[in-house]
Each structure stands twice: as C-alpha cells, then as structure tokens.
C-alpha cells in the first residue's frame, strides 16, 4: 500500500485522478455531460487557454513566472486582426501573412519580456506583469478601444468545420501540444529548462548560459501566447484589448492544478493538458449541473491550494515567503 501511495506517485497521478473523478461526478449528476458533443464544447473552450498554459509551463519549469499573457494575447490578436483585414481579409489572399506575423509579434514580445527580466535583473513576475500592462496599453492604442471583427469564413472554419465531431481548431491545438512536447523532451533547450528549474547554480556552474535559456524560454512562451490569441480570435471572431482577459488566472491555475510545481524543475506539457481540462471541465460541469457560476472560482481556488500542497516537499523548505 505505502509503496504505491508515495508522494511521487500521488503527485504524478493525482491530477489525472481528479480529472476522471470530476468527469464521473458531473456525468452522474447530469448524463448529458458525458457526450461527444459536450466534450467538443469543452475542448473548444479550452484551446486558447491550453496554448497560453503550454507557454507558461516552460517558464514555470524554469522556476520563473510570466504574468504578461493578457497583454501579449491582446497585442497579438489586435496585430493579427488589423494586418489580416488590411491585407484583404480573406485567408486565400495575402492576408495569410497575418498568421505568421502574429507569431513573430508574440516572440518579439517574449524577447523583450525576457531581456527586461535578465538584463535589467528585474524579478520575472514584476518584469512580465509590467510588460503585460504595456501590452494592454499598446493594444488599446492600436484599437482606440474598438473591437475588430474577423469574419472570413475560411479562417472561421477553425471553429465551424468539424472532423469527427470536433472543430478544426482542436486538432491544430493538438498539433501545437505535440510541438510543445517535442520541445520539452527532444530538444536541448527543453532539457535546459529543467536544468535551470532544478538548480540554477548547478546549471550555471556546469557552463550553461542561464540567461540565454531564460530569454529563449520567454520567446517560446510568446509564440504560444500568439497561438492562443489566434485561437481566441477564431473562436469569438473578435480581436480586442479584452481578448486576453482572465487568461492569466486560468492558465496559471491550469498549470499548477496539472501538477507542475511552482518551484520549477517538475512537471511538463502533459500535466498542463490535464490541468487545462480540469479547469474547463469544472467551468462546463458547474453550469451543466446547474450550480451558479461563481461557485466555480471557489472550487478552483481550493484545487490550487491542494495541488500546491501536493507538489511541495515541505521537508526541504525551511520557510515559506
């Protein structure tokens, strides 16, 4: 018994067990929950959040934090929509350039974020929080507070076209997840994230350019934020300053609930997938069983405390600040 109930095992499998338990609970409460159509709805709602969460996963593995996602998403969404419309507004023209352009903007945003953090030696939470505000301000400047509608049917087919009952965007998100997994497990930079998060001094002493790893980490996160922005625009058809609204809370909650430790070095993209699904299953399930929506924030809060509790080795901590 005690062999299986080790902290490591619990830490590894608890998120998945929680997800399964939630699905069983909601299905028992309302059988409609357990249907392909509903899972399509849950995954559809989850795609933008999954992209943001994948980005922040790398940062958290490094032991840093990034709070700039709301600003980054707003900037990427607005730049994408503005460029897309000015280049023709339909995907089968030069407007497709807006898609890679958004990713470039995301990476530049991440680059600046990383440089501010590393070069100016500002703690990552403060550097990224400030950059987030800069992003919100920038997108507001570009839009003047207006919303930009993207109505091209080909672009919107990400939402409206379905293969095997799931919209196209879900498959593209799956592809991005595989890319993230590849970065994490098959590339040097992926391993370096764990090295930095596991013990920065050691990594530095082994000759690793920690600052470079950090900056690249923020750039990769920026690209995923841009992907999240694209999916968010595809889902709603609107790009605005508020496109990224609430994504900070949702993404960090997802990553933590998925079992990636805030101290760095532990966890990964699959944890994040489970975490995002937990958060979205709760959001969907609460409504499906007829509870008021604001209860869900409370439940999520409790889950975060539980997740952090499980992922913390208290013996190794002299104090908590």
């Amino acid at each position: 018994m005690s062999q299986f109930m080790t902290r490591e095992n619990l830490q590894k499998w608890a998120p998945l067990l929680v997800l399964i338990a939630l699905i069983l609970f909601f299905s028992a409460a309302n059988p409609n929950f357990l249907s392909v159509r509903n899972f399509a709805r849950i995954t559809m709602a989850a795609t933008p959040a999954l992209m943001i969460s994948l980005g922040i996963t790398f940062i958290i593995i490094m032991g840093s934090i990034d709070l700039s996602m709301e600003g980054a998403v707003a900037v990427c969404a607005v730049v994408f929509a503005t460029l897309f419309l000015s280049l023709g507004g339909v995907l089968n023209s030069w407007a497709w350039v807006a898609l890679p352009a958004a990713l470039v903007v995301g990476s530049i945003f991440g680059l600046i974020n990383g440089l501010v953090h590393v070069r100016l030696k500002i703690p990552s939470f403060m550097a990224s929080l400030s950059m987030g505000f800069v992003g919100i301000g920038l997108s507001l400047l570009m839009t003047g507070g207006d919303r930009i509608r993207v109505e091209d049917p080909i672009f919107r087919s990400l939402l409206t076209e379905r293969v095997l009952n799931f919209p196209l965007m879900v498959y593209f998100a799956g592809l991005a997840l595989l890319v993230a997994w590849f970065i994490q497990s098959r590339t040097r930079i992926g391993r370096n994230f764990y090295a930095v998060g596991g013990g920065e001094e050691l990594a530095h002493a082994s000759g690793l350019n920690v600052n470079r790893v950090r900056v690249i980490g923020f750039m990769i996160a920026g690209v995923f934020y841009a992907l999240g922005a694209l999916f968010a625009v595809a889902r709603i058809g609107i790009a605005e300053t508020a496109t990224g609204y609430n994504l900070m809370f949702i993404s960090i909650t997802s990553v933590v609930v998925g079992g990636t430790a805030l101290w760095g070095g532990i966890g990964g993209v699959w944890n994040t997938l489970v975490g995002v699904l937990i958060v979205n299953v709760i959001a969907n399930g609460m409504i499906v069983i007829g509870l008021p929506r604001y209860v869900q924030d409370g439940v999520l809060g409790v889950l975060v405390i539980l997740a952090v509790y499980l992922s913390t080795d208290r013996k190794s901590l002299a104090f908590v600040k």
Binding site: R37, I287, G290, Y294
Partner: peptide, 25 residues
C-alpha cells in the same frame, strides 16, 4: 431554464452558452 452571470464578458458568455446547450439541448 437558467440565468447565469457572464460578467459582461464575451469569452465567459461563450463558454456558459455552450454549457447551457449541453444541459438543456
């Protein structure tokens, strides 16, 4: 059938509406 707070927010409203569709079809 139900009344939920969507906090004036497009994304939240989107999610709530799709959940409504599951619940009430």
């Amino acid at each position: 059938l139900d009344y939920q707070a969507a906090d004036w927010d497009t994304q939240k409203a989107n999610q709530i509406m799709s959940s409504f569709l599951t619940r009430f079809g």
